[in-house]
Design a binder for these strands. Structure first.
Lengths: 239, 239
DNA sequence: GTCGATAATTATGGATACAGTATTATCAAG
DNA sequence: CTTGATAATACTGTATCCATAATTATCGAC
């Protein structure tokens, strides 16, 4: 079944295509992004085996770029490669959550600290805009939209921090967390509580108070962990 | 020029081969490891273009597993893939060092904190052993041996911390730092100073004082950054 | 002699082909 | 009916091949 035409870029070539600048993003990168989407959507759920041939056929490509994409996802922690046994979507345990959230709290806390130190008026304006939209989503209870915007908010702070390595680490861990799909936001009242915590972060940023921003962000993340823990005990009541 | 026989595993198949347990480590992994060694040895220096065909021929393999290995190294940050333009060994700037070292200080500080909290007598014994050998190397001024053992020391603490995500992040950053080869240990007296800092870490661990261990480790890393800064200003005196 | 356009070369990215191993299915024995 | 051995199947890992884009070399114009 030869794939005479690429189907993969049928929708959008991911990179902005300025007239003179052909995107030229490698196929394996596009494939990696599409795989991430499927994984986050739990179309490929944790523990699932990844059928290379079927997926390649589905994407209308050969196995070569697909396998390259899987190598990338493996080092992001989204999939696990078992030699000679194939590729599986990574499963995250409660233990992993306990390990990852404090790390995220530390990294994002540091981001907030650095961001507060370097914050330009223009940066603050962009944050305020996202923050306002978050308020709106929270008020109308749009969890999905809130979730996406929330990610933008955190990412922007990491970008403002200006430390590309810090950004990279935090983004990688965030991807892993998205595997669980246990969005703490589904907990009753968590949306409002989350906004209150964001308020604290924003207040510290407006005041250019780095230490306060760091602590507010740290508390925000750790509160998120507790909210998820509440979901778990709800679903699996302790014996 | 077909490669009829694998030359790649001529020396050692990296994984220990227990009789019943065939290693079955994939070729791309072996290749990735050999590439890391060449990069750390500056046989492939920062900025160098990586000639896929030449390397594949050198290893006696095809380009396919080599390219998969390069994808892995790229996500570790050791090489940079430029679409349609090939693969280059990553170059690290002073700015990157300023970004990475505080991160490492934070991560390794946290490792030390967790390690101190969970430390078993057996763990401590293993640390003491490495520590003692470090002392010996320092006394006889064996910089290379010290460097390797030092890595073992740090890695062991991260392993004792029991947080595999923390271990992963720290190891990735350490690999990137090894790109520079500016081992702070070559600075006059740094070997002794480094040992003094290790002493502080060990003392805190022996006392199971998590906070002290965290601070000692953090200070140790930041002192390392300052030592490297001294090398830089030595080589490139400020105008 | 320098600059620019065009042709030749070379390297990258992707597809296909193939060998070897793991898994599953089949079947016989207890 | 369960258990173990053997055969068939399917998939992973690697090599080879090919198309296309990038680089270099050649040649001509100014």
């Amino acid at each position: 079944m030869p794939a005479s035409k690429r189907k993969v870029s049928s929708e959008a070539p991911s990179a902005p295509s300025a007239p003179g600048k052909i995107p030229h993003t490698a196929l394996y990168q596009e494939v990696a992004e599409r795989l991430r989407q499927r994984i986050f959507a739990h179309q490929l759920a944790p523990g699932d085996w990844i059928d290379e041939q079927a997926l390649a056929a589905d994407f209308g490509i050969s196995r070569t770029p697909l396998r390259e994409a899987l190598k990338v996802l493996a080092s992001e922690g989204l999939v696990t490669l078992k030699p000679r046994r194939g590729c599986y979507v990574t499963e995250i345990s409660e233990r992993d959550l306990d390990d990852i959230f404090p790390l995220m709290a530390m990294l994002e806390g540091r981001s907030a600290w650095e961001a507060a130190s370097r914050l330009q008026d223009e940066d603050l304006a962009r944050l305020e805009e996202i923050h306002a939209r978050l308020e709106a989503h929270a008020a109308s209870g749009q969890v999905d939209g809130f979730f996406e915007l929330n990610q933008d908010f955190h990412r922007l702070i990491q970008e403002i921090s200006g430390n590309r390595w810090l950004l990279q680490l935090a983004q990688d861990l965030r991807k892993v967390l998205k595997l669980t799909r246990m969005h703490s936001l589904t907990v009753d009242g968590r949306l409002e509580q989350s906004m209150a915590e964001h308020q604290a972060v924003m207040a510290a940023l407006r005041a250019r108070d780095a230490t306060a921003a760091e602590h507010a962000m740290r508390d925000h993340l750790l509160a998120g962990r507790r909210a998820i823990a509440r979901i778990s005990t709800q679903r699996n009541p302790p014996g």
